[in-house]
Design a protein around this nucleic acid. Structure first.
Lengths: 198, 198
DNA sequence: AAACTCACATACGCAACGTATGTCAAGTGA
DNA sequence: TCACTTGACATACGTTGCGTATGTGAGTTT
């Protein structure tokens, strides 16, 4: 058989472990996931895991970084069609709410991530979503569309409201009917930041 | 020595374990807290814990219920001096932000609680804080002070925004200087729910 | 006061993490 | 091509910590 390059199989194995991590962490949570089972499910042992990621939390960090990156991409995509920056901001908020309905996002990034890795603003992935929001908020405040306020505070409040509302939506009996209520309330509240409303 | 009643010592031991749980969970987090050490620290063994609380998560639930109750009391106290209901709502929001600065509240109720016990709205303590906010929001919407919106959605967004902002404040380098920025932004955003602003 | 209850201690099995060590294929230089 | 090195991963082991099954003695009942 063709002799495969080392770096090639290593990247492949890292990918396998991260993919298995996404599944296991989303399904059972970080604490309840067994690394023996997880590694065995992709034909490896714990040796591979500790060599590549250092420890169990290292794998979680890698998984979080990957999912976080995908979230930022989703947020960008959903706000791409917006006419102005304000509509872009609202679109990103709606995207946050929709993303938190994803079991992987909810369990891994919103629950286990903060609990086991600490505050998201200190993650290596830097919470890419929040950075995007901060940028838009900064532009809107500078342009006078939004009232003067601390940029990071406003971005935090907006994304925090959206994410927390989404956790509620996801845990509700009928997510599909509660989702519009959440997005409507979000739009109302965000408008509190608008400068001129008369 | 005077023979002590059984129910008396039992309540006392429950209290000791809950108090030890608050300390340990706040300091090291739920997952990293050893039940052997925790029970030994109050002169008991794990036997007492499993008899009283069923399992490790049972103790966490009891601790969360106690802290949650204290949070509700704090919120009530801080909004007691408010003139009207709207000011009461803002005061509660400010109280949320201040409470999340408490290490016990942050670690136990905001991080480990949701991660290990599931969504707060399904807790036996019913997330007493949120219930209080819902009541005020309901009155304000009925009175026409706030725009029409789903009561629970509005309450969730407001408390979620406050709590998430508070997590940021707590994790920041200089909490004392970022706190006013957060409360100011919160007030601005909450005003988005006001009916008449002209 | 004898029988009983139950709150808690003791002892055990098991699962899972992390580490120390072994191993063999991929790379390197002659 | 062949000895030699590297390193990615497997294997084996020690440790920790949870949950349970069983024991026990102080308190309670009759």
């Amino acid at each position: 058989m063709a002799a495969r390059r080392r770096s090639e199989t290593m990247e492949e194995n890292r990918g396998k472990l991260i993919a298995a991590g996404r599944k296991a962490f989303a399904a059972e949570g970080f604490a309840a996931s067994s690394m023996d089972e997880l590694t065995a499910s992709v034909g490896l042992t714990r040796g591979a895991l500790y060599h590549n990621f250092g420890d169990k939390k290292g794998l979680l960090a890698a998984v979080v970084a990957q999912v976080d990156g995908e979230m930022a991409a989703r947020a960008r995509a959903s706000s791409a069609g917006a006419g102005d920056d304000w509509e872009r901001l609202l679109a990103e908020g709606a995207a946050y709410i929709a993303m938190a309905l994803d079991p992987e996002v909810r369990r891994i990034v919103l629950l286990d991530g903060p609990a086991f890795l600490g505050d998201p603003s200190h993650w290596p992935s830097q919470n890419a979503c929040l950075q995007a929001t901060k940028q838009v908020v900064g532009k809107l405040i500078a342009a006078g569309v939004m009232k003067s306020a601390d940029i990071e505070a406003a971005a935090r409040l907006l994304s925090g409201a959206a994410l927390n509302a989404a956790l509620w939506v996801a845990a509700s009996d009928d997510p599909q009917s509660t989702l519009p209520k959440a997005t409507h309330a979000f739009r109302l509240m965000a408008e509190g930041f608008l400068s001129e409303k008369c």
